[in-house]
Design a binder for these strands. Structure first.
Lengths: 174, 174
DNA sequence: TGCTTATTGACCGCATACGGTCTTTTCAAC
DNA sequence: GTTGAAAAGACCGTATGCGGTCAATAAGCA
């Protein structure tokens, strides 16, 4: 019974004692940060529900998907492609390899790097989960009026893309 | 030098070997799930950057903020108010208490529950971080054209709220 | 009143997420 | 040609995130 939202029954907000705490700060429910966290949470829940039985997380799917599109990438470049922390990706790759979905071959000409490839099982898995994953994306946007879905996606893409160049996010050596 | 995006240098997508993998599935970068994950990641990075030195995570802030608005809540109700998993919240509360920002008092009339309250230090902390937190929310939306920010927020709020009642998300005992 | 069920908090286990360090290896500059 | 910076992978430590179980307690019901 996939229902991992079960434990997250969000109570409607009835105001609480919002009163005298000095400055009347913005409400939590109106903060973009909180809303984005919720959306991320819902996204994960929908993924887990649609992909029940595949033993595949959304993070693992993203990695597999990118490896298929970039056969032979090394872990560092992959982490940059899909915006995973390098340390995090290490564990993800380890689990993907343990499940037999990817191979890690030594890179010819560079004894540091290991090149990532899908196995036949990995290819099959990606084909099998294609439909469920598509449903996740559909259901995620389903609550929005059809006419607003493209707008939402456009703004979301704009927000994430433009933050890559925000001062303060970029004061790191290229 | 807070720059926790440093390790997440997202490479522009140049197409890779997107070619013959059977069905031409949607691109990862166009999937709402991926974009929401990125937005969440950016949100966390901005929070960490603006709140550098406060030893406070965005999750901990959310909990503190909600406890201030609902003095005396128990952990279970709090988790429902801010949509944290009950297990996760346990650790968060533990850390907040260890840092002296909240108290856990036994609930009169119920020997199971413990009621949560801010300490004076917790109150002060919340006042001190108010401005940085406000900046996080501003910077998060800054890449969007001013006229689109309200639209984005509205759609995001609509998406998260309406998902609470989605069939499949709700097939759990009330 | 006694039994069944629900609620609360405390754990455990696994999977991210991210900052930091270390070793090995490469490469470029001197 | 050696040396120092840069790159790649392997770890470690802490904080979430979430599913599951368990014991103590409370509440509803026969």
């Amino acid at each position: 019974m996939p229902c991992n939202i079960a434990r997250i029954r969000v109570s409607g907000y009835e105001g609480g004692d919002q009163g005298n705490h000095g400055t009347p700060m913005q409400h939590l429910y109106a903060m973009p940060g909180h809303l984005i966290r919720r959306a991320h949470q819902i996204s994960g829940a929908l993924f887990a529900e649609e992909l029940d039985g595949f033993d595949l997380t959304s993070v693992q799917f993203g990695a597999l998907y990118a490896i298929r599109a970039h056969p032979g990438v090394d872990a560092t470049r992959l982490s940059s492609l899909i915006a995973f922390d390098r340390s995090t990706l290490g564990g993800v790759i380890e689990r993907l390899e343990a499940k037999g979905w990817i191979r890690r071959d030594p890179a010819p000409g560079d004894r540091r790097a290991k090149r990532l490839h899908l196995t036949a099982e990995g290819e099959k898995l990606l084909r099998d989960v294609e439909e469920p994953v598509r449903r996740v994306q559909e259901r995620l946007l389903a609550p929005l009026p059809p006419g607003d879905r493209a707008t939402f996606l456009r703004l979301l893409a704009q927000l994430t893309q433009l933050h890559a160049g925000t001062p303060g996010m970029d004061d790191c050596p290229e």
